[in-house]
């Protein structure tokens, strides 16, 4: 809140409404400075790929164990997990944020979906 007009001429309600608007409008679009620094991005991207792969293989393995379908579901979910990992890397790198499912940016506040 850098621009604050403390002029008493406006009346309290108007100034309160103004301050509230400033505060509510301050919803930034950044991912946080730390999360965006080079090292942070590199670590996050690597981790996201690996964790998506782990989840994919884990789901496949559990389904195989449950349904007794040999290695096939694990192989299938390994591929899907790699795809999910790639997708989240792509999203992080192109600044679409952490969101699962994304929408194209439509101005302020909608970059992350």
């Amino acid at each position: 809140m850098s621009e604050r007009d403390p002029s008493p001429s406006k009346g309290f309600e108007a100034r309160l409404a103004e301050a509230r608007a400033v505060r509510d409008g301050e919803r930034g679009t950044k991912d946080g400075a730390a999360a965006r620094s080079g090292m942070g991005v590199a670590l996050r991207i690597g981790l996201e790929m690996v964790s998506a792969l782990i989840v994919g293989v884990g789901i496949g393995w559990l389904l195989d164990w449950w349904l007794g379908t040999g290695p096939w579901l694990m192989i299938l979910f390994f591929v899907l997990g790699s795809a999910a990992g790639m997708l989240s890397v792509f999203r992080t790198a192109s600044g679409l944020g952490q969101g699962v499912g994304y929408k194209p940016g439509k101005g302020k506040g909608s970059e992350r979906g």
Binding site: V50, A52, V55, G56, F77, G81, S88, Q98, V100
Partner: peptide, 11 residues
Amino acid sequence: EIISYLSRPIS
């Protein structure tokens, strides 16, 4: 997408 969502707590 579901795998991507489930990988959140792990990462």
